[in-house]
Design a protein around this nucleic acid. Structure first.
Lengths: 145, 145
DNA sequence: ATGCAGTTTATAATGATTCTAAACTATAAG
DNA sequence: CTTATAGTTTAGAATCATTATAAACTGCAT
C-alpha cells in the first residue's frame, strides 16, 4: 500500500486524522515528483476514481483548505471563477495557457526581475508572482514594451 | 455636460448605442487621468450614485463585457471570487495589497524581466503579468530566493 | 468494546455571474 | 414630428463555485 505511512504520518503530524478521504487526497497530491496544479472538481474526479466511491465536495474543500493552512498547498492568482491550487508552495512563477487552462511552473531562479519600483506607502513586498500567458503561435501578441 | 460628445462618439464608434447607462459608466471609467481598478459591485455603487437611480447588474455586466470586447477594459488575474477590471489595457503590472484589495499599476518599463525560459511546446508568449503582493510591514515575507 | 471528539456527508445557503423574455428606447425612415 | 423596429435595459430566475449546517459516521484513547 504505497507509502501509506508517509501520508498517515504527515496527516497526524499536522493534527489531522488520517481518514480514508484525506489519505486518498494526500496520495493524489503528494505522491508526485512534479508540481500538481488543480481545481476542486478536477481533484474530485481523480479522488472518486481512486477510491471508487463518491466523495463530498465539502470534504474536498475542507481538506484542501486544511492542507493550504498547513502550508502544503497554495492558491494561484488567475482570472476566471474557479480557484486553482498548486502543490508547489515555494515562491515561483507560471506559464499559463488560457486556451487549455494548463499551468507550468517556472522556478524563481529561472526568471530575473530587476529595477522594481518601491512598494506604496508603509507597505512591504511579500511575494512576486509572474504569470506568462502563452498561446498557439497563430495568436496575436501584446505589445510587451 | 462634461465631455458628453466624447463618450457618445466613443460608444457610437464601437457600434454601441449611447444610452444613459452606458454614458454614465463610460464617464466613470474613462473620465480619469489615473488607471481605475474595479469590481462590478463597486462600479454599480458609483454609477447609481451618479445617475441617482438603480441600475441592473445585468446592464453592468453587459456594458463592462462590451467594453472589454472592444479593448477598453481588461480583466486582472487575482485570486478570490470576484473579477477585477482595469481601465489600463496596456500590458503592465501591479502591486496588490491583499489586505485591502488595493491595486496599483506598475508600468512595463518600470520592471525589468530577463532570462525568461522559453515557452512550452508549440506555444508563444503573449503577455507577462507581474503581481507584487504587498502587506503592512509587520507581516512575514516569503523567501524570494 | 465503548465513548466521544473529530470527520464526512447531503443538503441548504450564499455570492458572483449569466440567462431570459418582457418592457423600454434610440434612431432611421417617412 | 410620428412610427416601426432593432438594440437595450431590467427584474427575476438559473447556474456555478464555494461555504455553512447539523445529522450520521469513524478513528482512536480508554
Amino acid at each position: 500500500m504505497d507509502h501509506l505511512k508517509f501520508h498517515t504520518d504527515k496527516l497526524r503530524a499536522s493534527g489531522l486524522r488520517p481518514t480514508k478521504q484525506r489519505l486518498a487526497i494526500s496520495k493524489i497530491l503528494f505522491n508526485r515528483k512534479e508540481t500538481f496544479h488543480f481545481t476542486i472538481d478536477q481533484l474530485k474526479k481523480i479522488a472518486e476514481k481512486n477510491i471508487k466511491k463518491k466523495i463530498s465536495v465539502a470534504t474536498l474543500y475542507n481538506t484542501v483548505h486544511a492542507f493550504e493552512k498547513k502550508g502544503y498547498l497554495k492558491e494561484i492568482s488567475l482570472k476566471g471563477n474557479k480557484t486553482f491550487f498548486d502543490t508547489n508552495t515555494r515562491s515561483h512563477h507560471h506559464f499559463y495557457d488560457e486556451e487549455t487552462s494548463q499551468l507550468t511552473d517556472i522556478k524563481n531562479e529561472n526568471i530575473s526581475i530587476s529595477n522594481l519600483p518601491k512598494a506604496p506607502n508603509g507597505k512591504k513586498i511579500r511575494d512576486i508572482e509572474v504569470t506568462i500567458k502563452v498561446a498557439s503561435n497563430n495568436q496575436k501578441q501584446k505589445n510587451l514594451v
